[in-house]
Design a protein around this nucleic acid. Structure first.
Lengths: 231, 231
DNA sequence: ATAGTTCTGTTGAATTTTCAACAAAATGGA
DNA sequence: TCCATTTTGTTGAAAATTCAACAGAACTAT
């Protein structure tokens, strides 16, 4: 477990927990680690919501397939972030999404019961973990607010620019990578891939952005949401 | 406070708290009640995220206006439900939504600090409240999953049917009221109002549903999401 | 290096949405 | 009850999206 120390330090679930206590705590929580190949479905839709997942390396994709096979991406989860905690905390019988490895990934699982129920050892950290879960869930709610703000826009262009502005703001620069390929970005923005490619081309020709693969550069303070945003 | 007892009993924030302790607890938490007229903006966008709101009567609308004045409705909050708790728990400086009274409404506010920080009286209920908040936030996350599932559909018809199916399932009947008027429903589904009216007419003519004002009846097990859903 | 596979950008046609405008219906007060 | 206001349904035109198909680029594995 030593080798994941840097991950644990940044993990919202463990914030405020003393490094020295981590190992005993993880043992007490019955944490298990597993490795998954790229594209492996870690938790298929319908799985019981019993475990909180922690990405130790790689990345996973929270997605949903409709009856036609169209994929909707809810979020990407990067190292040190957690997933499926909402289903676990709400105690849902079967989760409404799939969790898929975006690349080879190491994942740690903790049974939520071990977190919520104070154990026989009277470990002192349960209350801290619950507070951390509460804070994390509040942040996740904000994340969904942003996602809804993005996909509630009526055109592909507006969705894309709103997304890129959020990404730019959160990374603190005008030039940044995004964690999606084209199809992935389309599935996150909930639009058609070819229409998205077309729109990116147009924006490039209009001098509003530059892009190369999954690297984007915004060329104007295109604050779609305050300056008036380019028609 | 006595007259709100039934509300408090059903409020997710207070679940598991003994009736007899409610009054002292609310005093200790510094809970304040205020009444707002229909259409009054209870918390404008940009307000500090300091308070958790509890709807005692009436209903409020969590909404967002874009630069063109288009309204997006995130959710309706009914009596005994709470709102703005995610902003409070995440400690955001300014909330990204407005909270508007949908009708004359009585609202109770509690400063989140009073909940999170154990007070000088060493009140025993802080841990219970934090657990309740955690659970509530997990449920809110599920609510947003449903909302995203709805608005990620590509056509107005699919959005509407997906929404009505959720509503039907959650109310446990095929005939039910929804908490929106036409414009409100359009703003929740993130579509054009006139297009929505048109689609409702079509569905009625096709014998898929009946509707009268905000009362809808689904005439087929239109499980848009499992049976195949009508073209 | 090469062959096969996957990803990305382009195009045109069909479908759907948005927008504006207006009439009919419903609502709320005086 | 009647008037004024708000809400809802309809329509046609313009704009945008989706869909299918394909070619070129990029990537993988041998």
């Amino acid at each position: 477990m030593k080798k994941y120390l840097e991950i644990f330090k940044r993990c919202p679930l463990f914030s405020g927990i003393d490094e020295a206590d981590l190992e005993t705590m993880l043992t007490c929580l019955g944490a298990k680690v597993a490795v998954f190949d790229k594209r492996y479905t870690i938790l298929p839709e319908g799985s019981p919501g019993k475990y909180v997942g922690i990405v130790l390396s790689g990345s996973v994709c929270i997605e949903q397939l409709d009856i036609y096979g169209n994929r909707s991406i809810l979020s990407m989860v990067m190292p040190s972030q957690i997933f499926a905690e909402a289903f676990a905390c709400a105690g849902v019988a079967s989760i409404p999404v799939s969790v898929v490895a975006n690349e080879e990934s190491e994942i740690m699982f903790i049974n939520i019961e071990r977190i919520l129920n104070t154990c026989s050892n009277n470990c002192p950290f349960h209350n801290a973990l619950i507070r951390n879960l509460m804070h994390d869930l509040a942040e996740k709610t904000l994340m969904f607010h942003r996602k809804i703000d993005i996909i509630s826009k009526r055109t592909t262009r507006e969705k894309l620019l709103t997304y890129l502005n959020y990404e730019s703001k959160s990374q603190g620069r005008m030039s940044f990578d995004i964690p999606f390929d084209r199809q992935g970005l389309a599935d996150y923005l909930e639009v058609d891939r070819s229409g998205l490619s077309l729109e990116i081309s147009k924006l490039r020709k209009e001098g509003i952005l530059e892009s190369r693969k999954n690297h984007f550069t915004l060329l104007q303070s295109t604050t779609t949401s305050s300056t008036g945003g380019l028609k």
